[in-house]
């Protein structure tokens, strides 16, 4: 799966995107966050406050309980602040 990060999350993770093989038991966005946090302290720091995280699967905004299913890209970012 392709992971993309924006803004504060991108800076904390240290890359703007990466490819990672997701374990079979990681089924939802929330599972993915927990799995990444267990992989490296950078993710734990980037995802420390779940209330300040938003997600998109294949460029559609989704909630944390959304299933990864056949999606190819998961974006993780803070609440938006444009305009």
């Amino acid at each position: 799966m392709r992971f993309v990060y924006f803004a504060r999350v991108r800076e904390a993770v240290g890359v703007d995107s990466e490819e990672r093989a997701v374990p079979a038991d990681v089924r939802t966005v929330q599972d993915c966050i927990a799995w990444l946090e267990s992989c490296d302290a950078r993710y734990a720091a980037a995802f420390a406050d779940p209330s300040r995280l938003r997600f998109a699967l294949d460029q559609q905004m989704v909630a944390a309980d959304a299933a990864l299913a056949d999606h190819e890209e998961l974006a993780i970012f803070p609440p938006v602040t444009g305009g």
Partner: peptide, 27 residues
């Protein structure tokens, strides 16, 4: 359009200060 753009469109804003520091704007 401007009210919903603020909450629905994927943009993130950072402020650059005169002393060279920068900080992300919170929603």
């Amino acid at each position: 359009l401007i009210d919903r753009l603020k909450t629905d469109a994927a943009f993130w804003k950072k402020e650059h200060l005169g002393d060279g520091s920068a900080l992300w704007v919170e929603a």
